[in-house]
Design a protein around this nucleic acid. Structure first.
Lengths: 240, 240
DNA sequence: CGCGTTTTTGAAGCCCCTCAAGTGTAGTGG
DNA sequence: CCACTACACTTGAGGGGCTTCAAAAACGCG
C-alpha cells in the first residue's frame, strides 16, 4: 500500500528502501478525522508533527473582527513543520477541510529520523524550501495581482501540486475546496470569487464543480496568472 | 566590537564563548555594499549565505508588468536562508536598501557550523521559525487588513525588531525606508501610503521623517494593527 | 546651486466589497 | 418518495477604498 508521505519525500531525494520503511513506520498510528476538525489551535502548546495521508487541510488564523485568513493548503504527503517545537504556543491553527487520514508522529522520533539519515535530511530541507517559496508566492499574489490573476495563480499552484501526488484523472483534478474556502485563502469575498470563477468559466478557461477542477486551457490560465512553477521545484520522479 | 549576527543568535539560544567566536569568525570577510545593490538576483545560482552586519536589505520579486513586491525586510543580524542551497536557481532577489556591511559565508562552512554545534543548531531553528511566522503574518495583513491597519501592523513589527537589535534611541527608532519601499512591501501605492501616514500623523499616533520613526502612542498603534508580537518570539536577553 | 528623487496634495475612476434575495444541492427524517 | 433543513452557489444594485493620472513642493546630494 502506498504512503503519500513517503512518496512525496521520495520525490525530493533518492531514499533507500530502509529510509522508506522508517518513514512509513513513523506513520503507524494514523487515524481518521472528519472535515472541519482542528488538529491544533492557535495558543495550544505544539504537540506531534501532523502528516497528511489522505484528505486536505489548511493553516489559518482567525481575526478579532471575525474574518479568517488561510495561509497554506496541505495535501496528502504534506506535514506541519517540526521547527515549531521550540515555541511555547502555536501562532496559527491547522484544520482539515475534508475527511482525512492523519498521522501524529512524536516530534522526538521525527527529529531523530531526520538527524540520523542524510537522505531524509535532504528531503526535509527541500520540502521546507518549497513551503517557504509557496508562502512568498502567496505574498506576491496578494500584494500585486488583481482578483482574476490571483484566482488563476492559486488554481495553477493547486493543479501542479495535485498532479504531482497523483490526484489527476486525465484533464481533471480532485478539488474539494468551496468558494468560501478559496475566498479565505485569496483575501477576497466569496461573492467576488464566484464572479471571477464565472468569468473564467464563460471564457472557456477552467471550471470548478462537483469536487473537480477542469482546466480546459492551461496555457491561457498560466498566462493570466503569470505562473512560474519554479518555486514548487516539481519533484523529479526518478524511476528507482 | 559587537557583531549583529552573533548578538541575534545569542538571543535565541545560550551560546558559549566558543560558539560566539565561531560565528564571529565566519563573518570575517565582510564587505561594504552601497544602497540599492542586488546581492543576488532571481535566476542566479544560489551562492554563499549572506549575513547583514549593518544596514537594511529586502527580498523582492519583480513582476512582468513592472511592479515590485517586497516579501521580507532584513535588518542587522538577519541572514538569508541556507536551505536555498538545494535549488538550481533563486526564485527571488535580495537587494540592499541602505549602504550596508555584508558577510558572505560559504555555505559549506555555515552548514558545518550548524551541524556540529547543538546550541547553534537550536538558534538557527528558532530564527527560521521567526522568519516563517513573519511571512505568515504578512499574508494575514495583505489578505484581511485595510490600508491603515496594514501600515500600522508593519510599523509595529519593524519597531519591535529594531528595538530588539538596539536601533532605538529613546522613543524613536532608526528607519531608513522610503514610502515607495513601504508601498512595495505593503501591496499599496506610494500615494496611498502617503495618505495613510498623514492620517496617523495627524491623529498623533506615529510619525516618519528624516530617517527616524517616532511612535507617540504605541498602545493605539498596536490596537489599530491588531498586533500580537508572539510570532516574533522576542528574544530573551539572558544576562549570561 | 542644480538636479534627481521623494513627498505631498487634488481629482476622477475602477475594482472589489457590502447588502440582499433567490436558486441549487446534499443529507435527514417522516 | 417527498418534505425539510442547512449550506453553498449565484446574481443584482449600490457604495467605498484604493488606484491612476497629474503636478507642485520639499528634500538630499553632488
Amino acid at each position: 500500500m502506498s504512503n503519500a508521505f513517503v512518496e512525496k519525500l521520495s520525490g525530493y531525494a533518492p531514499l533507500t528502501a530502509a529510509d522508506r520503511a522508517l518513514l512509513a513506520g513513523a506513520c503507524g498510528g494514523a487515524r481518521r478525522v472528519p472535515a472541519r476538525y482542528d488538529l491544533i489551535r492557535e495558543g495550544d502548546k505544539p504537540g506531534p508533527v501532523f502528516v497528511m495521508l489522505e484528505g486536505w487541510a489548511c493553516r489559518y488564523k482567525l481575526l478579532p473582527e471575525g474574518g479568517r485568513q488561510i495561509m497554506a493548503f496541505m495535501m496528502p504527503g504534506d506535514f506541519c513543520d517540526m521547527h515549531v517545537a521550540v515555541l511555547d504556543e502555536m501562532d496559527h491553527s491547522i484544520a482539515t477541510l475534508t475527511p482525512a487520514r492523519v498521522a501524529a508522529v512524536p516530534r522526538g522520533q521525527m527529529e531523530r529520523l531526520i538527524e540520523t539519515n542524510p537522505a531524509i535530511t535532504h528531503a526535509f530541507w527541500w520540502s521546507q524550501l518549497v513551503d517557504e517559496g509557496t508562502l512568498r508566492a502567496w505574498i506576491v499574489s496578494m500584494g500585486r495581482r488583481g482578483s482574476v490573476e490571483r484566482v488563476a495563480h492559486l488554481m495553477c499552484e493547486i493543479y501542479v501540486r495535485a498532479r504531482n501526488i497523483g490526484l489527476e484523472h486525465g484533464t481533471l483534478v480532485e478539488f474539494p475546496l468551496t468558494q468560501i474556502v478559496l475566498a479565505d485563502a485569496l483575501g477576497l469575498t466569496p461573492v467576488h470569487v464566484n464572479r471571477v470563477l464565472r468569468k473564467l468559466r464563460l471564457e472557456g478557461i477552467m471550471e470548478i464543480g462537483r469536487g473537480k477542477l477542469v482546466i480546459s486551457d492551461p496555457g491561457k490560465l498560466a498566462r493570466i496568472a503569470g505562473f512560474d512553477d519554479n518555486y514548487l521545484h516539481r519533484r523529479i520522479r526518478n524511476a528507482a
